[in-house]
């Protein structure tokens, strides 16, 4: 959660720097986000799922997140650039996960990040596999070590986080009067 908290903070900072307002978020219908919580719930279920069902659950979770991205792209035109960037990051991760049956983790990157090498199949929400010399799309795997915070991320992760930063700032800058709740309040 560390990275997303930093991305959210950066997005809010960028939004304020561009004279945006956090209250624009209060105008978004909460139902819009429901599918994201469903995708998150699927990831939590992974902990209790039999090993054979884990990959299907990971894919299901990715498809739900993709459905949210597609749906919100059609509803939040003001934040289209941020959504597109998030969707690109989502797609890069989905691509490499589909090709490998999980997100491959580079052993060298894990060591560089200052982490012990363990059985990656058994950790971090059970969506990782060990990367080998023949792993397809290796450049999209978890190969980027971030030693200060002891994490290893993928290119898709970085693009997704940048998309979140942009999305937050774009929603903050969006014309609140055009969003459903503000419009209803102004008519009262």
């Amino acid at each position: 959660m560390l990275f997303v908290v930093l991305a959210l903070a950066a997005g809010v900072g960028l939004g304020y720097a561009q004279r945006g307002r956090l209250r624009s978020f209060a105008s978004l219908p909460l139902s819009l986000f429901l599918v994201l919580w469903l995708a998150f719930a699927l990831q939590l279920v992974l902990v209790y799922a039999p090993v054979g069902a884990r990959f299907a659950l990971v894919l299901g979770s990715y498809l739900l997140a993709g459905a949210w991205l597609w749906w919100s792209a059609s509803r939040l035109r003001e934040a289209l650039l941020g959504i597109s960037l998030m969707a690109f990051g989502w797609f890069l991760n989905l691509l490499v996960i589909s090709a490998n049956g999980g997100m491959p983790v580079s052993r060298a990157a894990v060591i560089r990040a200052g982490l012990p090498w363990t059985d990656v199949r058994e950790g971090s929400l059970f969506k990782h596999v060990a990367a080998g010399p023949d792993t397809p799309l290796r450049f999209l795997c978890d190969v980027i070590a971030v030693p200060p915070v002891h994490r290893v991320v993928s290119l898709g992760d970085i693009v997704l986080l940048l998309g979140i930063v942009l999305f937050v700032s774009q929603v903050m800058r969006s014309d609140a009067t055009r969003l459903p709740m503000q419009a209803a309040a102004s008519q009262r």
Partner: peptide, 30 residues
């Protein structure tokens, strides 16, 4: 009203955390 707005903002931002959990795949020791 302000409290409701604050909760809605927090929920919207937390939902992006849910997106990260669902679509991101960083490795950390757990």
């Amino acid at each position: 009203m302000l409290k409701v707005q604050a909760v809605r903002i927090a929920l919207a931002l937390a939902s992006l955390g849910a997106l990260w959990a669902a679509a991101g795949a960083p490795w950390k020791c757990t």
